[in-house]
Computed example of a mutant assay.
Amino acid sequence: MHKKMFGAMGLTFDKQTIVATALTGAAAVSINGETTAKAFALNREIRNELDEFRNTYLVFVDEISFALYQDIESLNQKMKETLDNPMEPFGGVPSVFSGDFTQLSPVGGVRLEFIDLFMELKNNH
């Protein structure tokens, strides 16, 4: 479905078109993604492979309730540097953050308190 839609727009759909990540390894596995830290080399210097994110149209980050402010700011800065777009949040790539704020707080800090929009799900999805 996605390949056809992107193909109709003259765009290529590959594994980096929509980047699915999560802050925990278990959550990353459940969405067929990888940890946010690994995907964006948050704990290392920028690597050459990050150039592959130049064709990314959406970044999805699950388990945001476990994030510290510093985690999100690191992701923001890394994407700005990687995409050479320092004036736009997250390098200008639309980013979706999801999680359950009634779960445990992040280890070693205070949970995030920025919410622009939220949806309450009544069932497990």
Rank of each mutant, 00 (worst) to 15 (best):
residue 33 G to P: 00
residue 15 K to Y: 07
residue 76 N to T: 03
residue 24 T to G: 04
residue 76 N to D: 06
residue 125 H to I: 13
residue 119 M to P: 05
residue 70 Q to I: 10
residue 97 F to W: 06
residue 75 L to I: 07
residue 6 F to Y: 14
residue 47 R to T: 10
residue 120 E to G: 09
residue 94 P to V: 05
residue 81 E to T: 12
residue 15 K to A: 09
residue 14 D to W: 05
residue 57 Y to V: 12
residue 113 E to V: 13
residue 38 K to A: 12
residue 22 A to C: 02
residue 60 F to K: 04
residue 104 L to C: 12
residue 35 T to F: 09
residue 15 K to W: 10
residue 90 F to V: 02
residue 98 S to H: 11
residue 82 T to G: 02
residue 10 G to C: 07
residue 99 G to H: 03
residue 88 E to Y: 13
residue 101 F to H: 08
residue 17 T to W: 07
residue 74 S to K: 14
residue 39 A to E: 07
residue 83 L to S: 02
residue 52 E to R: 08
residue 43 N to A: 12
residue 30 S to C: 03
residue 85 N to G: 10
residue 32 N to R: 09
residue 108 G to C: 07
residue 81 E to R: 15
residue 40 F to L: 07
residue 105 S to L: 15
residue 28 A to Q: 01
residue 122 K to V: 09
residue 48 N to D: 13
residue 8 A to I: 15
residue 35 T to D: 00
residue 39 A to T: 11
residue 106 P to L: 03
residue 8 A to C: 15
residue 124 N to F: 10
residue 98 S to P: 04
residue 94 P to Q: 03
residue 71 D to N: 14
residue 9 M to W: 11
residue 73 E to D: 10
residue 79 M to Y: 08
residue 53 F to G: 00
residue 112 L to T: 08
residue 124 N to K: 11
residue 30 S to L: 05
residue 30 S to V: 02
residue 1 M to E: 15
residue 28 A to N: 00
residue 4 K to M: 14
residue 4 K to E: 15
residue 18 I to H: 00
residue 122 K to T: 12
residue 33 G to F: 01
residue 39 A to Q: 13
residue 86 P to E: 02
residue 68 L to H: 05
residue 11 L to Y: 14
residue 61 V to H: 00
residue 79 M to V: 09
residue 69 Y to C: 14
residue 25 G to T: 07
residue 84 D to N: 10
residue 41 A to W: 05
residue 100 D to T: 04
residue 48 N to I: 13
residue 114 F to N: 11
residue 61 V to F: 03
residue 95 S to F: 10
residue 28 A to C: 03
residue 34 E to Q: 11
residue 33 G to Q: 00
residue 47 R to Y: 08
residue 79 M to C: 08
residue 65 S to L: 07
residue 123 N to R: 12
residue 121 L to R: 00
residue 114 F to W: 12
residue 103 Q to I: 11
residue 33 G to E: 00
residue 66 F to V: 09
residue 91 G to Y: 06
residue 26 A to F: 12
residue 112 L to Y: 08
residue 120 E to C: 11
residue 42 L to C: 02
residue 81 E to N: 12
residue 93 V to Y: 03
